[in-house]
Write a protein that binds this DNA or RNA. Structure first.
Lengths: 223, 223
DNA sequence: CATTTCAGTGGACAGTTGTTCACTCAGTTG
DNA sequence: CAACTGAGTGAACAACTGTCCACTGAAATG
């Protein structure tokens, strides 16, 4: 029960270099927190509970974060940062398809299955009880919206003609609407009972129609 | 410090009938909870903390609710129930205006100013850590969406022609999109610094354009 | 007027929480 | 090889938590 605590023995082994050890424990803290927050909110997560689960003593927590809120913003950056690069990679992958919308949506659904607790955490803490975490999420989502906006401007979408002649704020408006809707859809999907495939495809179907309606509106903007 | 506790003395006075007293204390619990939850989430609210603030002994709480979660769903019903009737009254008030959207939006903003903590609670707990509360909110929002759907079908909106020939699920799809967007806008407004009027009007302006874009899409549906 | 009802009392229970402190001892450094 | 650094230790602190229990006393009941 000394230096070789639980999380050290079990996981990726031998590198006993010091910085790697620290990074490893830090990651264990983040992962365990994400797991514990599957059906609770961040400000009900106790420092002791977390460290107990990780297998270290409470005070060791302070070597990595000053408090739980900081752990929260680190978690946000890891979740949404990784998600953004993933989405970007996919967007770069498909050159320009005709059905960009339903394509992107199915990508989202796939991401949602293999990163459930990431999405859940973001949806839960977006308007949650910890102010710094809220700010961090807003920052990342704004960044995502900005990326989507330039993406919309760069490639010619088939249904959105003459987008390049829009006002800049209108492009941003559209991107924000889409991002918000996607996050909202993800949250809705996550609250469904895990087995219910029928309800899930219903939700996805509705989200798809909603996105198409938005695209339809964009085509005729500014009316 | 006996029977005539704090909340009894201060607020609406003499009716010492028993059921009124109980209802009064119950309401004090709800109000105080709403106040305490201004910048925290529900599952970090302690039973003792709440009763201490109300001015009753911890165990007295159980005379009104079996646990904090139940207090939460009661709060949801009070917030969203009241809000729904308020919105309905306003909608019945204006016969049919040309600018329904921006009209409704300014109504929302007005409601948002005089019921800040109600909206904040709903936005925070919608995807928050307490499952029964989440379910209650979803129920109420679905109800709101259904009301809006029949409202959209009943009165002829100027910009949404031939809505009565839509599929039922499409009307619901539109109503859900609008309700979600309104809730989202409310949450965004609430997270702004209270004094910043410029940022607020920016947000409102963007929400207005987004709603008009949705209406524009509706006009051309199903494309 | 005697009896019942029940919202609120107050104390005690065993757990939990965040933070402090001096400490150990493996990995790094000069 | 000796000195240093710093991630993790373990005990102790005061304060807090939810829930149990027998109780009081005013309003309601018949």
């Amino acid at each position: 029960m000394h230096v070789d605590s639980v999380h050290r023995c079990l996981l990726s082994d031998v590198p006993h270099t010091r910085v790697e050890q620290k990074a490893h424990t830090r990651q264990a803290l983040l992962d365990t927190a994400l797991r514990l927050l599957e059906d609770r909110s961040l400000d009900s997560l106790g420092l002791r509970e977390l460290t107990r689960e990780v297998g270290i003593v409470p005070t060791a927590f302070y070597r990595h974060f000053p408090d739980v809120a900081s752990l929260g913003v680190a978690l946000v950056e890891q979740c949404l940062g990784g998600l953004r690069t993933a989405v970007r990679a996919v967007r770069d992958g498909i050159a320009d398809s005709d059905a960009v919308i339903s394509r992107s949506l199915s990508v989202l659904v796939a991401q949602l299955h293999e990163r459930r607790e990431h999405f859940r955490f973001i949806a839960r803490e977006r308007h949650g009880g910890v102010a710094p975490v809220r700010r961090a999420i807003r920052e990342q989502l704004d960044l995502s919206a900005a990326e989507l906006a330039t993406d919309l401007l760069t490639r010619r979408l088939p249904h959105v003609t003459a987008l390049e002649r829009w006002e800049a704020q209108d492009v941003r408006m559209l991107a924000t609407l889409i991002v918000d809707h996607v996050v909202q859809t993800a949250a809705a999907l996550l609250e469904l009972p895990p087995g219910d495939e029928a309800a899930a495809s219903d939700t996805i179907d509705m989200a798809d129609r909603q996105l198409r309606l938005i695209a339809l509106g964009s085509r005729h903007w500014p009316g």
